[in-house]
Amino acid sequence: MRSFSYERATSPGAAAAAAAGTANAKFIAGGTNLLDLMKLEIETPAHLIDVNGLALDRIDETADGGLRIGALVRNTDLAADRRVRRDYAVLSRALLAGASGQLRNKATTAGNLLQRTRCPYFYDANLPCNKRKPGSGCAAIGGFSRQHAVIGASEACIATHPSDMAVAMRVLDVVVETVRPDGATRSIPIADLHRLPGDSPEIETTLQPGELITAVALPKPVGGTQAYRKVRDRASYAFALVSVAAIVQGDGTGRVALGGVAHKPWRVEAAESELPRGAKAVTARLLADAKPTKDNAYKLPLAERTLAAVLREARG
């Protein structure tokens, strides 16, 4: 690990200002992803700003009947919150499908959204990776690409976003609240938070340098039968090959987002009008522009079958 200086932030605004005003600085909260990458020298911050002391660990009810989740709420606590279990079951289910008990006790809401890809070529510093070293190339393209993106990828990068939680948040249409180094706050719909790789896969979100996530706002409950189904190589503690987050209403309408298929949680609202016609019709539109490799073409029928299983269960 490279050496770094360390400070404990005293307020969200001060943390953002410090991050913008210090060369090569990063926030640290749970640290479960950042420290893993620092040990491998894939992340090499010169300065860490510890935000754990900021009072951003509450889940409060909002004026419009939703919930505001503090950025530092741990994955365990978010999944276990009575209101989340009752009204946003897809979010509880997605959180519980991710990582291990030890990691969920540490990992935070904001950190989960901002975690880096688990592409094995991103992790292997001996091989080219445009995300790790811009301009060096992509070893996954033409490499072993079983885990990689089937849609929304580019000539520069075919990595996927690893989060389960973010897929549920996309289907719930949460809003991400931030503070910028100048103290200004803004709200970012989750659909606009994560970027597709394009020709700059090293830029993963629309956050500006130093911008700190302070909370995630859940809209008022949307009802319906909510499900998160994750397909992976082993039954526990593994990343998704394909996952489906779905909310199905009594009249057959609903919402669907996929995980494990793209550089961001994958949702196409127009495809949801096909829900009454079944999984095949939905995935045909949701994945219409898919360009799988020979290694990961299996994800297309797998996504359809996984959605079919979710719809069968939701409709009893």
Binding site: G31, L35, D50
Partner: peptide
């Protein structure tokens, strides 16, 4: 319970 390898002592 946490993984003590993935957290800094100073935290």
């Amino acid at each position: 319970r946490i993984n003590s390898c993935l957290t800094l002592a100073v935290m």
